[in-house]
Computed example of a mutant assay.
Amino acid sequence: MSKNFDELVTVMARLRAPGGCPWDREQTYESLAPYLLEEAFESFDAIQDATEGKPENLREELGDLLLQIIFHSQIAEETGDFTIEDVCATITRKMILRHPHVFGDKKFDTAIDVLQNWDELKKSERAITKTDETVKDSILEDVPLAFPALIEANKLTKKAAKVGFDWENTEQIFDKLREETEELKKAISEDENIEEEIGDLLFVVVNLARKLDVEPETALKKTNRKFRLRFKFIETELKKLGRNLENSDMKEMDALWNEAKKIYK
């Protein structure tokens, strides 16, 4: 390992050792789980900054994420489960085995060929290592229930599409979108099943994104970010006028929103 990496591992070991940090010493796999998820999402968010030429946040967030991996590995080493060396060795072997076109004699012409081979290799690995002893009733059981809803929906429909359960083209999805929109309007007018129909509508939009090779979580994150910037513009401009959101109205805010759209596209 590199000097910096080894130093980080040593720091974590010291924090967990007798005489170390009381908080760090109390942590378990379970207590750290929310932090791992939080750091993963903060890294996800920092990627947008990096694409805009500001990689500093991503560097910091990846460090925080790496710390969580080392933290879990330190706990594992103390309990005799595995070490950080085992973690690195396992992923290295996996990457070599799943890239026979790089480290072996296989030849693939497209990225799709690579992904198809990747899936086949995953099945073979499970059979050899017997890491998937339980007989599954559905191919969808591979998708964790803990995933955020947009990611889960995308993964579920990708699994289904791989076995042919999919629309032939985007126009068919737009037809379904119109159908679900009408069903939602009906639900609203009858004041029943509104939540269910909203869910169905969102699910179709996720399918549309998948069909267009757009990652829906990333797309919505970018839109959320754009909304933040545009709304902040409204607040800032109102302050310049000696006003605030409470004493403004929709007409004024909408005019400022249209100005913000020209700046934050």
Rank of each mutant, 00 (worst) to 15 (best):
I139S: 12
L66F: 05
R225Y: 04
S31F: 05
K239N: 08
K94Y: 00
E120N: 02
L208C: 13
K239F: 03
G80W: 13
N207E: 15
E39I: 12
D142W: 00
I75A: 00
E168V: 15
I91P: 02
N207H: 12
D86W: 11
E183C: 04
L67P: 05
A111S: 13
L62D: 10
I234Y: 09
V135A: 01
A127H: 02
D105P: 11
W118N: 00
K186T: 03
K262H: 03
D64E: 04
V102F: 12
I234D: 04
K158T: 10
V205R: 08
Q74L: 04
E197M: 13
K240P: 04
K251L: 06
P22A: 05
A160N: 02
L115W: 00
I139R: 14
E217M: 15
L15T: 13
T92I: 09
M250A: 13
L36W: 12
N207K: 14
P216I: 00
I75P: 03
D132K: 12
A111F: 07
L201G: 09
E190Q: 11
T134S: 06
E179Q: 15
L177W: 14
L65V: 01
K222N: 01
P55C: 06
D142A: 14
A17D: 13
E42M: 09
A209H: 13
W167M: 09
C88I: 11
F44R: 05
A17H: 14
W257K: 08
A17V: 13
Q172V: 00
R98K: 10
N247A: 08
Y29C: 09
R178D: 10
D81A: 15
A255W: 04
K94S: 00
V214M: 11
M12T: 13
M250I: 15
S124C: 13
N4M: 06
I75T: 12
N154W: 06
A40Y: 08
T83W: 06
H99V: 01
P144C: 11
P22L: 01
